[in-house]
């Protein structure tokens, strides 16, 4: 599937942007894992709602922070003007803006 002329090495800026996108893809996976941890923690029974709630809300806030940081960087790097060409867009014509 991979086109043969895909460059082997990328410029530093492109390289960083791709890793940034990788990180953005990882966030929900990490979040899902952290949100499922209470299943293990409560399997012994008798966990407290107050402390459990604190854990869930803290993880939540951390996710918001990380997502905020990454998405701001991603939007900036994709260029201010929309539509942002995706990292895997190989220089095609930009999509027509509607409406």
């Amino acid at each position: 599937m991979t086109p043969p002329r895909e460059p082997l090495f990328l410029a530093r800026q492109n390289y960083r942007r791709r890793r940034l996108a990788d990180a953005a893809r990882l966030v929900p996976v990490l979040g899902a894992l952290l949100f499922m941890i209470p299943i293990l923690a409560t399997s012994g029974g008798g966990a407290s709602t107050a402390r459990g709630g604190m854990y869930v809300f803290l993880v939540w806030l951390a996710l918001i922070g990380v997502a905020g940081f990454l998405s701001r960087r991603l939007v900036e790097r994709s260029g201010a003007a929309s539509p942002a060409p995706g990292d895997d867009n190989k220089g095609g014509e930009p999509v027509r803006e509607n409406g």
Binding site: R25, L63, G86, N98
Partner: peptide, 29 residues
């Protein structure tokens, strides 16, 4: 605390916008 699951799902979808939502919005347009 079970009520919170109803909001955790959308949170995961939104922070994972680079997976599905971005594509969905691009196709939509």
């Amino acid at each position: 605390l079970e009520f919170v699951t109803i909001y955790l799902g959308p949170t995961l979808v939104m922070v994972g916008w680079w997976w599905a939502l971005r594509k969905l919005v691009r196709i939509g347009r």
